[in-house]
Simulated assay, not measured.
Amino acid sequence: MPRHSPSSIANEFLKRRGSSEYPSQMYIQKLVAIANGWNLAINGEPLVNAAPQAWKNGPVFRQIWDFIKEGGHKGPSCEIADPVTGQIAIAHISGSEQDIIDHVWKKYRNYTPQQLSNLTHQANSPWAYAYFEKGRNAEIDTERTRQYYIKLALAGRSNLAEEQSLSAAGRINAA
């Protein structure tokens, strides 16, 4: 069962970012959505305790939106704090969750907010189903998200195997 608030996972990325400049809300929202998707596919459960909503520019976690809107960022890494208590949201993540967050950060940290948005709301994505079938701001289905990221993982493995095979064939032909 996921134990983490969306804001606490957002803060994991903000700490890694290590900047005192306020990040784009879109950037943080999409990193959390992507990490949640990969955790569903790899660890079999959501990373966060709330489902994202299908907003115009992709998945959005309402808690992150509200906390930033109402309370903003705090601390040297611009972490997200609860606007009522002022407490910075903290996640106590497991090793496998840490691996997911590290992977997402390593792979996507240099993407622009718009590039991340484009990734998360492509045709046939969980966002597209929720947005076009259920309506704007509808909750994005967890099982659809899990299946979508499993397909991405399998496609990635297939592409990697193909690249390794071609690389090996190139070495053999060159010899």
Rank of each mutant, 00 (worst) to 15 (best):
A161Q: 06
L166I: 08
S94R: 00
A138C: 05
I101W: 00
P76D: 08
E97K: 00
E70P: 06
A41R: 08
G18H: 10
A51L: 01
I28P: 05
G72P: 12
W55K: 01
E97N: 01
E45H: 13
T85N: 13
Y149I: 10
Y22V: 09
D141K: 07
A175H: 04
A175M: 11
R144T: 05
E70C: 02
E21K: 14
K69V: 04
K106Q: 05
N110I: 02
Q29D: 02
F67M: 10
I34H: 12
D82V: 04
G135T: 13
R171Y: 06
K106P: 01
K69R: 12
G95S: 07
P46N: 05
E45M: 14
S8Q: 07
Y148M: 13
A41N: 15
I150A: 11
Y149C: 07
H103P: 00
V84N: 13
G44L: 13
S167N: 09
S7P: 10
G170V: 02
Y22G: 12
L40H: 03
A50R: 11
K74H: 14
E139T: 15
C78N: 15
A153T: 10
N11R: 03
K74D: 14
R109V: 07
L31Y: 05
A41E: 13
I150Q: 08
Y131R: 05
R157G: 09
P23E: 09
S20Y: 10
E70V: 00
R62Q: 03
L116P: 02
A153G: 06
S165L: 15
R62S: 03
K30T: 15
H103D: 12
N110G: 11
H121K: 15
Q87W: 12
L31A: 12
S20F: 11
V32L: 04
G170S: 03
M26I: 14
I140V: 01
Y27R: 00
A153R: 12
I80V: 11
Q87R: 14
K74E: 13
Q114R: 14
G135D: 05
V32C: 04
M1H: 11
N49H: 08
E45D: 11
K69W: 01
T145F: 09
R109D: 00
D99W: 01
G75E: 07
Q29K: 05
K15F: 14
E162S: 15
A54N: 06
A169V: 01
K69I: 01
N49E: 15
A174F: 15
A168Y: 11
G44Y: 03
Q63E: 15
G156N: 10
K134Y: 06
G72R: 10
W65M: 10
N124W: 07
S96L: 06
G75A: 10
E45L: 14
I93P: 00
K56W: 00
A10E: 03
T120R: 02
S158D: 08
P52W: 03
A153D: 13
H121Y: 12
P46M: 00
A10M: 02
W55I: 04
A54C: 05
H4W: 02
Q25D: 12
G156K: 13
R157W: 05
I90P: 04
I93L: 02
P113C: 08
R146H: 09
R109N: 04
P83Q: 06
I34N: 10
T145M: 15
S19A: 01
D99P: 03
I42R: 04
Q164W: 02
F13L: 06
I80P: 07
P76S: 09
Y129E: 01
W38S: 06
